[in-house]
Design a protein around this nucleic acid. Structure first.
Lengths: 298, 298
DNA sequence: CTGAAAGCGCTTACAG
DNA sequence: CTGAAAGCGCTTACAG
């Protein structure tokens, strides 16, 4: 460990730091657990450092982070879960390229088709005979939340079913209990038979809270998540969900970013089709208690 | 978004960047999911940026990261899961302070008492009547892995039980199936009745693999994890585990780092006592199949 | 091909 | 108190 050059001096001359900034919504969200390794996979073979930071799902903090990236004159930016989105366009003017994830309205993006994913989930529940299907989100602030709601609405509408606004509820947004949303669901005059959740964390919280109140999944309620986190295969019951290829999302966004850094700035929009992963948290409507369990055991 | 100063120029003058480097072993490890927010909690109220990066459990990459921190002349470093440890001492000579997590041999550290945690787990299993207790680790490269093994050995020894080396096995180290370790366990002439796992991820993999082979937890095997990740309360059965207060670990390490940055360099060693969290993956040895379930239901 | 000089954009110590 | 100058440690264009 003899002489180590000063990056500050080098960056001053180059007017650019050999660093890629990654802005994510929240380290607590297991979504990023596999996303960042996808980004690393691309960066590791370049001579760039990776600078990961979160903005805690907060507009203000995202703007601050955004400014920090500018101050550092990073070579490029990957953003996932952005709340300010088009703000990154102003960095483009200073020739700092950005690629957004799950934000197809930005000119450079890699996204999973949220609308289509939600539709797939609802179509599947409908195919199982469900008609009263709730949607539990975590607030409708992000594009993804809104697009999934649109997909939910579209699927019901396409099948000629009415959309009941009191079946659309807000959950907590952290892994844990979902007392409030579950209470609201249970007091409805016509109880849903299925619950489509914004993501796996919410789904696991909903399942857990229902189980604590004595209900069984999927006998009493079918539950569908979104993401297909590692946990989805290990929770109880194993969760039916819409898979987002999270590692791929990170990998492809970063590949695109490096293309842009090397000067290839053709507008680009990559969209990945999500897949439905059927596990044990969903069942045909009206199956008698225990019926499904016997089926899978026998 | 008018004039934004260049951090590079400022850092050149100050010979220091207003950035805290955080080195973690692996973004895939849910351990860090709550660790980094603990670090953020302290940093957010300072004017420092946070630079999080991983070294993928690789010596070489940790050294590279370490050099990158030096090149950037960061104001200080937090390291968790370090493989090179004392290497950070050379940065201290260049007045870049570091605080290591779960590495009590470094002069500045915040750690959970790994030895004591493992002892607590084994003592509990012994109190339930278990005598044949396996330990499944992920490789004995880190201090934490070695200290937990020592605690396992000490607890058995203190009770006058022999230590059988073929009960000490290596697992995969990623969330998923643990075919190899489970196969080895099942072919032992004297099968264990309890399995102490290096961490929750391993425990969940072990439970899942055993269940797929038709065994029930905790009737056939008691399983104990380490960490108390969020998932531990939502897997099936809910996992008995040793709790590491991960958020606290991040928070306190960063508090210590800022003290050091402000010039308070008294040697410091903080040790947190871990707690045993009893859930449903452990039961008294020899309880007939179904017995425990009836117990908890009735 | 080699080596001294200019300059990147700031901060700070100093002269006026 | 204000403002011009020096200098942080590199890279690069240029003179020799």
């Amino acid at each position: 460990m003899g002489y180590v050059p000063s990056e500050a001096a080098r960056s001053l001359v180059n007017k650019r730091s050999a660093t890629i900034g990654v802005a994510i919504a929240d380290f607590r969200d297991p979504f990023y657990t596999n996303f960042i390794p996808g980004v690393e996979e691309v960066t590791i073979s370049s001579y760039h450092d990776l600078f990961v930071a979160s903005f805690a799902k907060d507009h203000q903090r995202e703007r601050k982070l955004f400014e920090a990236f500018f101050e550092k004159r990073v070579a490029g930016i990957i953003v996932a879960g952005s709340l300010v989105k088009d703000a990154y366009l102003s960095l483009e003017n200073h020739s700092i390229p950005a690629v957004l994830v799950n934000c197809p309205s930005y000119p450079y993006s890699v996204s999973v088709d949220q609308f289509w994913g939600a539709q797939k989930a609802i179509n599947y529940l409908i195919s199982l005979g469900h008609r009263q299907i709730a949607y539990v989100h975590q607030g409708l602030h992000s594009d993804t939340a809104i697009d999934r709601l649109k997909g939910y609405r579209a699927a019901l509408h396409d099948h000629g079913f009415p959309i009941e606004e009191n079946l659309i509820l807000q959950g907590e947004g952290v892994m844990g209990s979902e007392e409030k949303a579950v209470s609201q669901l249970l007091t409805l005059s016509e109880r849903p038979t299925a619950i489509f959740c914004f993501n796996d964390m919410t789904a696991i919280g909903i399942m857990n809270t229902l189980q604590q109140r004595g209900f069984s999944i999927p006998q009493d309620f079918s539950v569908v998540g979104f993401d297909d986190l590692d946990i989805a295969a290990y929770c109880h019951p194993r969760l039916t969900t819409i898979q987002q290829p999270v590692y791929q999302l990170g990998y492809r966004a970063t590949k695109m970013l490096f293309q842009r850094i090397q000067g290839n700035n053709d507008l680009q929009l990559e969209v990945i089709e999500p897949e439905l992963i059927v596990r044990d948290s969903t069942a045909p409507v009206g199956v008698p208690v225990g019926g499904v369990l016997n089926l899978s055991k026998g």
